[in-house]
Amino acid sequence: MFTATPLNRRSYRNQSLAKAVFFLMTVVLVIPVLLIVGTLVVKGAPAISWEFLFTAPTDNMTAGGIFPALVGTIWLVVVALLASVPVGVAAALYLSEYAPDNLLTRTINLAIINLAGVPSIVHALFGFGAFVLFFRMGQSILAASLTLAIMTLPVVIVATRESLQAVPQAFREACWNMGATRWQTIRKVVLPNSISGILTGVILEVSRTAGETAPIMFTGAAMFVPFLPESVFDQTMAMSYHLYNVATQLTDVPEELTFGVALVLIAIVLMMNAVSIGFRVYLRGMKKW
């Protein structure tokens, strides 16, 4: 009575097939990641040493280390964060907590989505025209960082808005009905409960900022600067642009050095992402609902 009919068996076969196909696709997704990381580690690891990390390039960048590029990337990321986080978080707060649902708001939302879709080379040209030329910043950390900031602004806004909207509406209702203003509600309830998501967005932005090449090429990154930047008005070397140079623009660069640069760059990005995930797990554990 309860034995399988041919129809059952056919359904079961189809189900197994579907499962196998989806599993295969998942594997296909993972393989490139493993290959990239594997290749980088195998070929780049021999180049990594304290000296590599903490000295400047020598011999026309065919030897020596990456210290100025490493420091330059940190400068670029920090200045970009200082510019984009306040603007992005404030904009997200407005859009999520204050903005009425009208044509203007919808237009702004559309603009944010479009800003996220603009290719980075277009951002680069915009940054060059606006910051380098029009605002006379010249090729500098400031110009490059502002370009990066504009490029990553949508990420900050979207991540912040999502984490704000993840705060249950009931909390806001509760506050409002005790006579709290919107700002008091935001400060005492909404922000404390969404800060983990906002930080995650910020850190993701950092990892993206660190890896971008195009936006900084015309706006502030230099192929070789023998000294470390002293202010935001200096040009600087950067990891991503340095990799582009040693890989494609220079001859006689030993392969292991190129892979070493790539390995350090991807390590920075992965570490940032790991920190971001760690943060999220930690703060979610502290969350009380």
Binding site: A170, F171, A174, C175, N193, W289
Partner: peptide, 10 residues
């Protein structure tokens, strides 16, 4: 005001 679902703040 008291709501349908208790909504203590976290």
């Amino acid at each position: 005001m008291v709501f349908q679902r208790p909504n203590p703040l976290p």
